[in-house]
Write a protein that binds this DNA or RNA. Structure first.
Lengths: 368, 368
DNA sequence: TCAAGGTGCTAATACGAATTATCGAGCGGC
DNA sequence: GCCGCTCGATAATTCGTATTAGCACCTTGA
């Protein structure tokens, strides 16, 4: 296969075929130079007019300005963003990098809400979004850094992903690449600008609700370690229980079937299960009901966030919602703040999660 | 200012930290010029080595090549994609323009499947995607052309939208902007490269199934005109009925309530309704059932494509599925084909729709 | 010994816009 | 008539890479 896109003067662009050549037969786009020649001024003047410069050092006669603007209007000239970026070092384009496809096919469309927020904010700020889809996959995930990395085409970059690669993060920090991480937020060769969900607070709040309902035997189901998102939930869980003077129990889920987990819960006399992974909550709840248990009567189940894996259920879990759209929005805010070196921008943010009332929390039954 | 490894109070450190400066304190990246000075060669040589040029006109001594490569490796030099693009006049970036937000919040997420296909193909081809989100809204929709249009950053552009603006399309053609329209496909000041769904064939197939089931009184519900997607369906409908020698009936939906439509259908003795708009099918079916009619026993309903407006129902309509993902994929293929001026690329394509068996088609009851 | 040919590299320039130092013209004041 | 000043615009340079013409040097061969 011939290398696609190898466009030199020898082929597409300049050869002019029916499909990419314009009606006048010319193959070059209009440049500032063209405008300049048309209006009898210099390229510099065109640039100055375009940028509305009219300060102390630079003055353009209104008449000239009008002539130039008119030519621009009639030719439909638009500045080449690439040249602009090279010369001015910015182009109001924001990169978006994910470690998985941005538009996943699965139902558990994890990135979508983030993108909604990112797009909303970008649109409001007049920025375009560059999806770094070309990053080659190696070792099962996309890599930011490779031989033809186009990150720098954008002014800065939003990183989306449940597990960002630590080394790549480090390299970004080291190279001074402006970026914001959505989710991941530990240091990597320096402080990392991030927008995360406030899992500790949200988890603690949920746990306190369970405590208020009368539960004393609560267990945390999940890893409780590894990614910050997990460790943070566990931390919130611990905090709330410690406050109340109850023992925090931890039931690791790795390599255990829902049945084993449920058995373990019941054997330990747990009345409220706090599940890290939504899908685990679904499995446990279904199994419990199949066994004739009442959820939440016999067992309350609290879900720490929306599904990240596809999980279909009609159960309305009590817990919280991860503010993904809001996080996307704020990520763009942080990024543009960094780019403008705005001292008022807080570059590390935790966004509160939204509590979900749901129907899986009830006071524990009093053991006879 | 060295980055501390342990932060007791991270916030204290944030103040005054330059978040876009790299660790060495220098803001400048390594350039080919730097490499050249380090190795005692010229910038041109570095470029030649980097591009692996070693043909008739250009020769580099293996020893020199190694020296340069070594310097590149130790400095971690990466070519600036911006400068590269400026010189090469292409950048493997494909623009994606939609007339509505790319990531709609509504449930009827119309663009998503297209985007999935577009991204898949772009990833395979090593292209990045530029979402033209900064297009300002005027007159209720986004405009491609405006004073700070960034379309030209991309090599070419995929146009998504149920109703592309004819004038803007014309301008794209006139200016010789490489683009592909997904959906719309009439000429606009010249032939328009497009990827569309094969509505005529799909509709005719559905109608033939109804005919095979014994229906003879079929009616087309919908505009049947206007956007090509509507006109095409109508055409397929007509073709299949003409073939079979039955009268094609048309029931325009504009300004008519579902009740009126159902009344009209029944009054005309129609046994199978072929609905242009999924949502109309839902409304009619529900109403019919409320009135005690059996769907499909008393009335078969055939849906010509997936919902474009949000419509929730548990009815499993017989009809066809629009191959949106496939269309997105092929749009990228066409676009890159145009860019490469590949003579083998067919720049106007109709993709077959996937038949859906469903449960809303049954033989008509024999009238006593 | 001199032309022919090959080898290895560089100087110069293009790409398109942004920016700065500078220049000429016009004008008023003394 | 000259200085100083403002106004209006331009030439020249920058950004980092790609490309091409051509130069200097070497080796052959006759």
């Amino acid at each position: 296969m011939a290398a696609p896109f190898h466009l030199t003067d020898a082929n597409a662009y300049y050869l002019g075929n029916d499909w990419t050549q314009n009606v006048t037969g010319s193959r070059r786009r209009v440049t500032q130079h063209d405008i300049a020649r048309m209006t009898g001024v210099s390229q510099a003047t065109v640039s100055l007019v375009l940028n509305g410069r009219d300060d102390g050092n630079v003055r353009i006669a209104p008449e000239t300005r009008e002539r130039v603007l008119h030519a621009i209007r009639t030719t439909g000239y638009v500045a080449d963003p690439v040249a602009r970026r090279l010369a001015a070092r910015h182009n109001r384009i924001l990169g978006v990098f994910t470690y998985e496809p941005v538009f996943p096919t699965g139902t558990g469309d994890f990135y979508h809400p983030f993108l909604v927020g990112i797009e909303e904010c970008a649109e409001r700020l007049g920025c375009d979004l560059l999806l770094l889809t070309s990053a080659p996959v190696s070792g099962g995930r996309r890599r930011i850094f490779h031989d033809d990395n186009r990150l720098r085409l954008a002014d800065g970059c939003v990183l989306l992903g449940r597990s960002l690669d630590h080394d790549e993060l480090t390299r970004l920090v080291t190279e001074g690449q402006p970026f914001v991480s959505v989710g991941r937020r530990d240091n990597a060769g320096g402080p990392v600008p991030y927008v995360g969900a406030d899992y500790p607070t949200a988890t603690a709040t949920v746990v306190r609700r369970a405590l208020a309902a009368g539960h004393t035997a609560l267990a945390y189901l999940g890893q409780g370690a590894g990614p910050e998102s997990h460790a943070d939930r566990m931390r919130g869980f611990r905090t709330a229980l410690d406050e109340a003077g109850h023992t925090p129990r931890h039931l690791p889920t790795t390599d255990r079937s829902p049945a084993e987990l449920l058995d373990a819960l019941l054997a330990a006399g747990v009345t409220a299960a706090v599940v890290e992974e939504y899908a685990d909550g679904v499995a446990i709840a279904q199994l419990a009901r199949e066994r004739g248990l009442d959820v939440p009567g016999d067992l309350s189940i609290l879900a720490l966030g929306d599904p990240t894996r596809p999980a279909s259920t009609d159960i309305d879990f009590t817990g919280f919602r991860i503010p993904r759209r809001e996080m996307g929005w704020q990520a763009v805010e942080v990024l543009t703040g960094l780019l403008e070196a705005d001292p008022d921008t807080v570059p590390q943010r935790l966004v509160p999660c939204q509590p979900v009332d749901g129907a899986t929390l009830a006071p524990p039954k009093v053991t006879p």
